[in-house]
């Protein structure tokens, strides 16, 4: 065989010619993956839009039963985690290994706080019988079925969002380990960059979920 397969490194896999080409490819691949995520959540946002237009009053009443303060706090927590994430990426660009680890750990902790608050909220729903199913009951509206529709969407959307958070947390843990092992440098930090993109995307989903689920009809027309 005449070909000279160049020595494979993390920054330059054998199918690429240059490290820049590989970085561009990873970045494009990640963005396309995020496009698929947009469409995935998009299906649920569509269902939400349709039903909210069909049953505005019930959706208002059901939304008011959510804890907006916790929702706002969680939004802030997630935005902070995006901030620490971007600082981790920045430290990665500069090749500061310890700083990367510190900010990744902070991001992971904030992610866990978010999930903890979320778990607390879900637990409340179980106690208040706000979980769709035979035992469902929401005070203040005769339309119990339609109220279940709201909570079905609430659980589907926040549930799949939380699942993405859990996956993100797993990826962060892996990144922390790899950074600790010294796999990244200023010349090669693509995984930190890519998982950063993922984390910010999950943040953006919540940026929409918060007002759409928690803040409908807060000014309280009539129950």
């Amino acid at each position: 065989m005449v070909s000279e397969p160049h020595v494979e490194t993390l920054a330059l896999r054998e199918q690429f010619d240059t490290a820049a080409q590989q970085k561009d490819a990873s970045s494009l691949g990640m963005w396309i993956f995020l496009v698929t995520e947009v469409m995935f959540f998009g299906g649920m946002f569509l269902a939400y839009t349709v039903y909210r237009n069909m049953y505005p009053a019930v959706f208002g009443a059901a939304s008011r039963s959510l804890n907006a303060t916790l929702g706002a706090i969680n939004t802030a927590v997630l935005l902070c985690s995006s901030f620490t994430m971007v600082l981790a990426v920045r430290a990665g660009q500069l090749g500061r290994r310890k700083v990367v680890i510190i900010f990744l750990v902070l991001t992971l902790i904030l992610g866990m706080v978010f999930l903890g608050v979320k778990a607390f909220e879900w637990n409340e729903k179980f106690q208040e019988h706000h979980v769709p199913g035979p035992a469902f009951h929401l005070e203040g509206t005769p339309q119990q079925g339609e109220a279940q529709l709201f909570f079905s969407l609430y659980f589907a959307m926040t549930g799949l969002h939380a699942l993405h958070m859990v996956i993100g947390a797993g990826l962060l843990a892996l990144l922390i380990y790899q950074t600790y092992k010294g796999r990244f440098s200023a010349a090669y930090y693509t995984p930190i960059d890519m998982i950063g993109l993922y984390w910010h995307f999950v943040d953006i989903v919540w940026i929409y979920l918060f007002p759409l689920l928690y803040l409908i009809d807060r000014h309280g027309v009539k129950p």
Partner: peptide, 17 residues
Amino acid sequence: VISGATLWLAILIVLTL
């Protein structure tokens, strides 16, 4: 790529609505 995602999400929502 990002504009494409936005446009397709709009197609999904607008045509269904």
